[in-house]
């Protein structure tokens, strides 16, 4: 029984992180109709950036892989700033790169209303490949340890070992999700964003700047993946290929829960995390990921709109 609680709690912690990632994924789908196959790399990149800013001394300059003019070093380094400061620095970078640049240069160009979504899917797969290989070549080739912001103490109430990290992760994720919901439901801006997501045409008629609302969604997604990166990296390490598994599990969570609702993605994430831990503990540790993936195939077979979603009325 102790083991069951232990496994479930740490599963909930992992699941809460997947939930955050899956909510970002679902938000992009709802507002822009964009399916992002580079979502895992969107988590991996902030993790690597946080690690570099937090513990390394990054140099500024043109690196030597740039043909012809490479190898110029501006000659000064940024001192390591600690994980939390690095996190604060990474958020605007993520909002710019993963939010603004991604939307303006790819999604806006490739996603015509009523058009085919395959080009964007392929382009995001290209983005994933690019980010993965770039991080591998330019920054880190081997997995690097990533310190937890909550420390690595373990509590032991009633014989159940609970790590402080898991509790911290659950608390932070709960706060993030609740504040996101409050923002979307209670504030003027959040309601405008919801309107833009539900019916872009009507929203435009009512004077809501739809395109800017979509941009805000991308920014929120960038913040969510940065938070997910900070929380998930202590257990998976900062590594260039972490995005493959993380992305797969994030959109497994989104699909299982239901693409078209934030609530669905939330429950889906928790379910994936717990299921992953259960199949790791009770079936075989080698098949940790197998549980969620089998559930994914099953869900698509019997209930394609997701366990907690409602049938799609808008697109498709």
């Amino acid at each position: 029984m102790e083991q069951f609680f232990q496994v479930t709690i740490s599963g909930l912690a992992t699941g809460a992180i997947f939930a955050i990632a899956a909510v970002g994924f679902a938000l992009l789908w709802q507002t822009a109709g964009a399916i992002n196959f580079a979502h895992g790399e969107f988590i991996m990149l902030p993790a690597v950036l946080i690690l570099i800013f937090g513990e390394r001394e990054p140099t500024l300059g043109i690196p030597d892989f740039v043909p012809l003019i490479g190898g110029i070093n501006a000659g000064f380094t940024i001192p390591p700033m600690g994980m939390l400061a690095a996190f604060a620095v990474t958020i605007p970078i993520a909002i710019f790169l993963l939010g603004y640049v991604f939307k303006v240069s790819l999604v806006d160009k490739l996603l015509q209303p009523g058009g085919d979504d395959i080009p964007l899917v392929i382009a995001t797969i290209g983005v994933g490949l690019f980010l993965r290989e770039y991080v591998h070549e330019a920054w880190i080739a081997t997995p690097q340890g990533f310190p937890s912001v909550f420390g690595n103490k373990v509590w032991n109430p009633w014989g159940v070992a609970i790590s402080v990290d898991d509790v911290g992760v659950i608390v932070v994720c709960t706060v993030v999700i609740i504040s996101l919901q409050v923002f979307l439901r209670r504030t003027y801006l959040g309601r405008q964003m919801q309107a833009a997501a539900q019916n872009a045409e009507t929203a435009r008629v009512l004077g809501i700047p739809v395109s800017r609302m979509v941009l805000y969604t991308f920014a929120i997604n960038a913040v969510l993946v940065t938070i997910a990166a900070l929380l998930v990296s202590p257990s998976v390490n900062a590594r260039w290929d972490a995005g493959l598994n993380l992305g797969l599990l994030a959109f497994t969570a989104a699909i299982i829960g239901g693409f078209n609702q934030v609530r669905g993605a939330l429950y889906g994430g928790l379910l994936v995390g717990v299921l992953q831990n259960w199949s790791g503990a009770y079936i075989s540790n080698l098949y940790r990921e197998a549980g969620p993936l089998l559930l994914l195939i099953f869900v698509i077979l019997v209930r394609p709109q997701g366990l907690f979603g409602r049938a799609e009325e808008r697109r498709i």
Binding site: I35, F37, D117, I118, V121, N245, L248, F251, T252, I255, L286, Y287, E289, A290, L293, L294, L296, I297, I300, L301, P304, I316
Partner: peptide, 23 residues
């Protein structure tokens, strides 16, 4: 199952399948 519904579901399912086969 994946082709029962319109949309890029096959991409997701095949990706999951690839990982399952690898495992």
């Amino acid at each position: 199952p994946a082709l029962r519904v319109q949309g890029p579901w096959l991409a997701f399912v095949t990706l999951a399948f690839n990982l399952l086969v690898f495992l």
